[in-house]
Amino acid sequence: MSFFLAALKRELLLVFRHRSDIINPLAFFLMVAVLFPLGVSPDPSFLSEVASGVIWVAALLACLLSVDGIFRSDYQDGSLEQMLISAEPLWMLVTAKVITHWLVSGFFLALISPLVAMMFFLPEPAYPALIISLLLGTPTLSLMGAIGSALTVGLRKGGVLISLLVLPLYIPVLIFGAGTVQAGAMGLPIQGYLALLAAILVFSLMLAPIAIVAALKISIRS
């Protein structure tokens, strides 16, 4: 446990020393959302209809953009190799990294999502649904993205490849996440959607670290 806390502390410290790592995904999230009214229509009734999907797609892309670097710098300076041969369990370290990534991308994103929701004229009852669904859904995105990141960390051109690998896996979270917001906007109960999002999160929290560790070992050895 103390190893886990130490790893978490190290990751958080690293992130807060590079503040642009926190701001960039959020700025990207805002910009993608702004493109839709510009590109499609600024009509409030149209925007409130597509708000749930647009916000979720923007969140998904912002998460995908930042997940590529989750192991990159540690791989390049060789510290990932040292962690791999150390006696401490690797899944703890991996989980610490994923939690940090989620705090930086998903958590802050959920906090600023009401701002975008307001710009998209999302009905007010949907706000809690939006925030809670993002809080429950984005950790899954970080976990799945970390699998893709671990698989491609040793490759020179990981960027486009990782989106090819990971985006299909994001589809269930997108469907249930956007569904939560839509149900919330119509005043329907959202507990069912939230339960599904939570179930997917628990499931991926169980299995994804195993896949990430296996993928990291392969990436380092080859």
Partner: peptide, 14 residues
């Protein structure tokens, strides 16, 4: 060898 193992993991995740 790396390609084989990495794509095996990906197909299992899929």
């Amino acid at each position: 060898a790396g390609a084989d193992k990495a794509s095996a993991i990906l197909s299992l995740v899929g």
